[in-house]
Computed example of a mutant assay.
Amino acid sequence: MPESRSGRAHTARPVRVLDPAIGPRRRRLAALLADMVPGARTIRVSQREPDRTWPSPYARAYDVRGCLVALNRAQGRTAARWVMRVHPEVNWNEVYDLDLATGVLRPAAEAYAVADGRR
């Protein structure tokens, strides 16, 4: 072990493990999207638009009650791109929900399971 100038070995510092769901970048993204889409609580992001066969960033917004919030094409595409860039580790062949209150990204399949009472 390398020694310091005082002759004693450096002590190992504990590694800080940060929860990726609450990182400052992800919280900032959730805040920006909440400002961009007033009234939205959740943004559902996917790599495919429902009426397209080729990959294209796509997002829908939902309010607290689960009702669809209108997004224009630019808002939807921008929101999807931002979420995909902040979460590059995610398999975007699946659909994900971003909770704008907490900044947590979850698979949309979990939301369906909770809504059906299976969870």
Rank of each mutant, 00 (worst) to 15 (best):
M1L: 10
V64S: 06
R27C: 07
R73A: 07
L100Y: 06
D19L: 09
V83S: 07
A61G: 00
V104P: 01
R106H: 07
V45H: 00
P38N: 03
V83Q: 02
Q75C: 07
V15G: 07
P38Y: 03
Y96I: 05
P50E: 10
A115N: 10
L71C: 04
S4M: 14
R118N: 09
N93P: 05
A12W: 06
V17L: 13
A12R: 12
V104D: 04
R73C: 03
Y58W: 13
V64K: 01
V45A: 04
G66M: 00
D19R: 10
V114P: 00
Y112P: 01
D35P: 00
V104F: 04
D19T: 06
R48M: 14
E94F: 14
P14V: 14
R27G: 12
L100P: 01
T78A: 05
G76M: 02
R8F: 11
I22C: 00
G103K: 03
A40P: 09
D116M: 11
R26C: 03
D116W: 10
R25Q: 10
S6F: 13
A74H: 11
L29I: 09
L29Q: 00
A34L: 08
P88S: 12
V69W: 05
V90T: 15
V45S: 02
D35M: 01
P88F: 08
P38K: 03
S46W: 06
L32H: 06
G7Q: 09
Y96V: 03
R48A: 11
E94G: 15
L33E: 03
P55Q: 13
T42D: 12
R106Q: 09
L98C: 06
Q75N: 01
M84R: 09
A113L: 15
E94M: 11
A12L: 08
R5G: 08
V114I: 15
A109S: 15
R13I: 13
R25G: 05
A12F: 02
R41P: 00
R77A: 14
H87M: 15
Q75V: 03
P20Y: 04
D19H: 10
A115H: 14
R81M: 08
L33N: 06
S56L: 13
C67D: 12
V90S: 07
L33A: 04
A108Y: 13
P2T: 09
L100K: 05
D116T: 07
H10I: 13
A115C: 11
D63P: 05
R8K: 13
V37E: 02
A101D: 06
R85E: 10
A70T: 06
T53W: 08
S56D: 15
A109T: 14
A79Q: 04
